[in-house]
Amino acid sequence: MRAVVIQAPGQLDVTTRPDPVAGPEDVIVKVRAVGLCGTDVHMLAGEFGPTVYPVVPGHEFSGEIVEVGRSVSGLAVGDRVAADPAIYCGSCHFCAIGRGNLCESWRTIGITQDGAAAEYVKVPAANIHRLPEDLDLDHAPLIEPLSTIVHGIDVVAPAVGDHFLIYGAGTMGLLYLQTALRNGAASVSVVDLNADRLAVASRLGADRTATSADALPRVGKGWEVVVDCTGAVPAIEDAFTRVRRGGTFQQFGCAPDQDVAKFSPFRIYNDEIRIVGSMAILHSYGRAVDLLGQGWIDCDTMITHRFGLDGYQEALDTFSKGSGRKIQIVPGLTGDR
């Protein structure tokens, strides 16, 4: 099969690899589409510590089962599917307390083992989710990023009527916006330096948008929930100052693993600011399947570019320039559309 391979930091090839073979508890999926993610950019740059090189990237994907392992039941060749890419050991302390996303032996398809930026991908059957018949396979790769949003909101545990401020109107910020609006937020404001992205945020329901939070009318003396979806230190440091007393700051965006941000410890103490992270997926993938199937997300607005495997580097460049929203790799596609 043809596949994209990140051989080492800074080294990307589109090459031929042996077709994957299903183990007893695996299935083989013929990939329909795979979403590009900021994590993929960090992996190529050598900025995402868990990456195991060489690796085929791609952890947001959909497709059709073409092979089923001999011990697998309940799945069949021809099933339309997507998959939770996270693989947990099931026996460490964190798995034992139901926090598998912090697993001490955490593995993920497309990061620590070969992913879906290829014609075929091997997936543990336990991670497979069959798709509703009316859910477009081209839209289904959005389930994975949406499932991280669902977990993020689980972690924040907002009250109905909370006011949200989101930094970043890229894919994750826009998904967070749409989900928060459906989850009882009184308002959602969005900050981004890119005016075109802000226009999309407004179209998707943002109450207010601005290139700086200074231009937004503050709700009281800040916002109950402030979420960074950029991973950029200047945005993170500014976002923290916007949290209302007693409010919550969430670090959702993935920053390079060596970056450091500065906060006021006194303010955390004096204003009882809660700071929370949100790492990937936890008991949220199946819910994301349902939410996408029920139309919570405007998929056509979210997906802006599609490239074939040979266009992977161009897709990364397009992503890094901020000129698209969700960018997909379609193995069966020649050129781009």
Rank of each mutant, 00 (worst) to 15 (best):
P20L: 00
V4N: 01
D300R: 13
A118Y: 01
P217W: 06
R130M: 02
L292V: 06
R17Q: 12
V55T: 13
A159P: 04
G49C: 04
R70K: 13
L146G: 04
I111E: 11
I87H: 07
D19G: 11
G295P: 12
A315E: 02
D336Q: 15
P24C: 02
L75M: 01
G253C: 04
V233R: 08
I297M: 00
G98S: 08
R107Q: 15
V200S: 11
G295L: 05
F61E: 00
T248L: 10
G324H: 02
D114Q: 08
G308M: 06
V243C: 11
I275F: 11
G46S: 11
H163A: 14
C103M: 11
I268N: 07
I87V: 15
C103V: 07
N127D: 05
A195P: 12
A215H: 15
R107F: 01
A195T: 15
G23Q: 02
V41L: 12
E60S: 11
P141G: 01
R208E: 10
V188T: 08
G74F: 06
L174R: 05
K321G: 09
H283V: 06
T51R: 05
L44C: 08
L12D: 07
G293E: 06
N183K: 14
D26C: 00
S147Y: 12
M43G: 02
G286K: 03
V31H: 09
I109E: 06
R182L: 08
C103Y: 10
D271E: 15
R337L: 09
V289A: 05
I87E: 03
V225I: 15
V21M: 05
P256N: 14
G168D: 03
R197N: 08
Q251R: 14
G69F: 09
R287W: 01
H59I: 09
A169K: 02
G115Q: 03
T301K: 01
V260Y: 09
I6T: 01
G58R: 01
V225P: 02
H59C: 06
I275Y: 13
T209K: 07
L309F: 02
A45S: 14
L135H: 00
P141Y: 04
V4W: 00
G74M: 09
E237C: 09
I303E: 00
A118L: 08
R245I: 08
R287C: 05
S284H: 03
E119Q: 13
D19L: 00
I303P: 01
R242W: 07
V330Y: 08
R267A: 10
A213Y: 05
R182H: 12
P331S: 10
